[in-house]
Amino acid sequence: MSRQSMLTIFGALALVVGLTGCYESSDVTFFEAGKYQGGDDPLLQKLEDPEFRAGLDRRFDGQRDR
């Protein structure tokens, strides 16, 4: 094997190895929140009530310049 072809092979190998280093898998581990493990908050139920929500929005009028 000539020096030249050896160099070519090594060069190609180096290129392959180098390129491999640049590879980024799209299959990453997202750091996602786990499932909430704590107790129930009765407030959540209350917030579902549109009338209650409307009350909060009316209360917000206090923060207006009037």
Binding site: A33, G34, Y36, Q37, G38, L47, R53
Partner: peptide, 11 residues
Amino acid sequence: CPTDCFYTTTD
């Protein structure tokens, strides 16, 4: 959070 103690209300 390692103990997953957070939750978010619907709003």
